[in-house]
Amino acid sequence: MRTAVRAEGQLKGVGTVNRPETTDEPQIHRALACLRDMTSLPLAFGGPVNAARQVRFTQFAGVTTGALRGVAVDCGLGLGGKVVARRRPIVVNDYVASSGISHQYDHVITAEGLRAMVAVPVIVGRTVRAVLYCTTRTTLPLGDRVVQAALETARDLEQNLAVRDRAARGADPLGRREPGGARTAPAAEQEVVREAYAELRVLAQGLDDDALRQRLEQVCAKLCGAGAAPSGPRSAPYLSARELDVLACVALGWTNTQVAADLGVTTETVKSYLRNAARKLHVRSRLEAVVAARRHGLLP
């Protein structure tokens, strides 16, 4: 009989640094923080699904005893494993009393004092990449509002991971030259440039000092030039500063709610900027907007 729960230390034997699922963890964490803020529940947690189709609990938003940290849930077992196997959300009003799931993990759930819970898969392409949980320490039903918030957060995360995957496929990890002679940055370095670019744009828009804001915008332009070669200035559509701000944040996997909070606008305003940018770039989705903006040299 295989062991259902594995401590984090037992999983670190081979290749943990290069496990592809670890690259999803920052975005999973941001999604969980957003989910907890939306629902006001005491704990949201989850983590990536590895090649063995195990959910690893690595990300937490809220108060936790640490009992869940590093636990790996096998496919088909418990709540998360069943979500991975069935590829759909599942809600339980009392985890330890539920007859619809197996109970190999009751001891860690009990140690956290968790009861009502929803678990939602994050599916990119045909692969379950992560599972998000939102939970309470009471047996009161979670309600439609909480379940809907979990679903929306998972859908946003799916789009954000798809954006990052698509962008990563366009970068040469060895930093070799493209046919036109432009040198592409290694993927890890390029991601750092993109994060710095987005943070500087957010900071610049919050400044009252016009001279300092212009200097930061000039630095942003230099960082933008460090990415993939643009298709040519004449072919690049005009995007407003705010549209670029929003796209720069979306490119890092931020949800609309997170972008709105950082830019000091409403979620509807963020959606409006995204629609405008997509129209100007002649695309239909946030994924395509980010890719098109990078192709035109508007984003690093």
Rank of each mutant, 00 (worst) to 15 (best):
T110K: 05
G113E: 06
D245T: 10
Q59N: 12
L157A: 03
T127R: 13
T267P: 03
G227K: 01
P48T: 06
R242E: 06
H296P: 02
D144W: 12
A85P: 09
S99A: 11
R30M: 07
Y197V: 00
L41P: 00
R88C: 08
A119F: 04
S285A: 12
I90A: 10
G227C: 00
A167D: 07
A241L: 09
G81E: 05
W254Y: 13
P233Q: 12
V147E: 09
V202Q: 04
R166E: 13
Q190P: 09
V246C: 03
Q218Y: 04
G227P: 08
A168F: 13
M1P: 15
R30C: 05
L114N: 08
D165I: 10
S235V: 13
G297I: 06
E8V: 14
P237Q: 02
V192W: 08
R155F: 12
P186A: 01
K280Q: 11
G47L: 04
E243Q: 01
V283P: 03
G15E: 14
G113C: 02
M38G: 08
G143K: 00
T135C: 13
Q104A: 09
V290T: 01
A168T: 07
L299R: 06
A72P: 04
A292Q: 06
N93G: 04
T23Y: 10
V192G: 08
V246Q: 01
M38T: 11
T255C: 08
D37W: 09
G206E: 10
A150C: 00
T269W: 10
G225E: 13
V128W: 02
R126N: 08
K280V: 07
R53D: 13
R2Q: 14
T138G: 01
R145K: 11
R155S: 15
R129W: 15
E8S: 15
A248L: 05
T184A: 15
E243D: 01
C249A: 10
M1C: 15
A130T: 05
A150V: 09
L114P: 07
A150F: 00
V283C: 11
G15K: 14
L41Q: 01
V128C: 05
K271H: 08
S272G: 13
V122C: 04
L35V: 03
L263E: 02
D156H: 10
V63I: 11
A119V: 00
G100H: 11
L203V: 14
R215A: 06
A277R: 07
L200T: 01
E21S: 02
E8I: 14
I109G: 10
H282W: 15
V193C: 06
T269K: 01
V73F: 14
A278R: 03
A229K: 08
T110A: 04
V147Q: 09
A188Q: 09
G125H: 01
D210I: 13
D210V: 15
S235N: 12
R194T: 06
E152D: 14
T257N: 02
Q54T: 04
D144M: 11
C249G: 01
L298I: 04
G175I: 05
A236W: 08
L247S: 06
Y238W: 15
P20F: 04
V270D: 02
F60S: 02
H29E: 14
Y273L: 03
G15Q: 14
L212N: 09
G80N: 07
L200Q: 03
R177Y: 09
M117G: 07
G232N: 01
Q54M: 07
T184D: 14
N50V: 06
E189H: 13
V84F: 07
G143N: 04
T139S: 13
R30K: 08
R286S: 11
